[in-house]
Simulated scan of single mutants.
Amino acid sequence: MDQDRRAQWLRGVLDLCVLGLLARGDSYGYELAQSLEAAGLGTIQGGTLYPVLLRLQRSGLVTVYWREGGSGPARKYYTISAAGLAVVGDAAGQWAAFAGGVGAILQERTAR
């Protein structure tokens, strides 16, 4: 895939993807990056992910807490707020409609 195109797409949906993952359960930054990569979004660097998490926190969609690590230092965990859950709920339907429209356009073939 063209890396510039992928980066543009990712900028538009990374916030929602992070919220979607947090809707499944609390997580910390590295774990979120691994989940995003496993979902097929590619490698997400900390310099990209942590500003997203900070923006979500400042907007009240995510809260944070520290949890002691069993074999290392404490980790900063992120949890989705009620407002964040509402955003995910609204965005899910909007995304499905948008992606369906894009998919329909890209699948159309004309007889020329």
Rank of each mutant, 00 (worst) to 15 (best):
A74S: 15
A74E: 11
S81K: 01
A86T: 14
T79G: 13
V102M: 07
Y78S: 03
R67V: 13
A99H: 00
R67K: 14
A97F: 04
A83C: 04
S71Y: 11
P73R: 11
S71I: 07
A92N: 02
L85W: 01
R67M: 09
P73E: 10
A74R: 10
P73W: 02
S71D: 12
Y78C: 09
S81V: 09
A91P: 01
R67E: 15
G70M: 10
V87Y: 06
A92G: 09
A91I: 02
A82E: 15
I80L: 03
A86R: 13
I80N: 00
V87C: 06
V102P: 03
G93I: 10
P73F: 07
A82W: 03
A83W: 05
K76H: 10
A82F: 02
P73M: 04
S81M: 08
A91R: 08
G72I: 05
G72A: 14
I80K: 03
A96H: 10
I80H: 02
F98R: 03
V102W: 00
A82S: 14
F98S: 02
D90Q: 13
A83F: 09
V87W: 01
A99F: 09
G100S: 04
P73D: 10
A74T: 02
A83G: 06
A97Y: 01
Y78N: 01
G84D: 06
Q94V: 14
G101A: 11
A86M: 11
G72R: 10
A97M: 04
G101E: 10
A83N: 12
S71W: 09
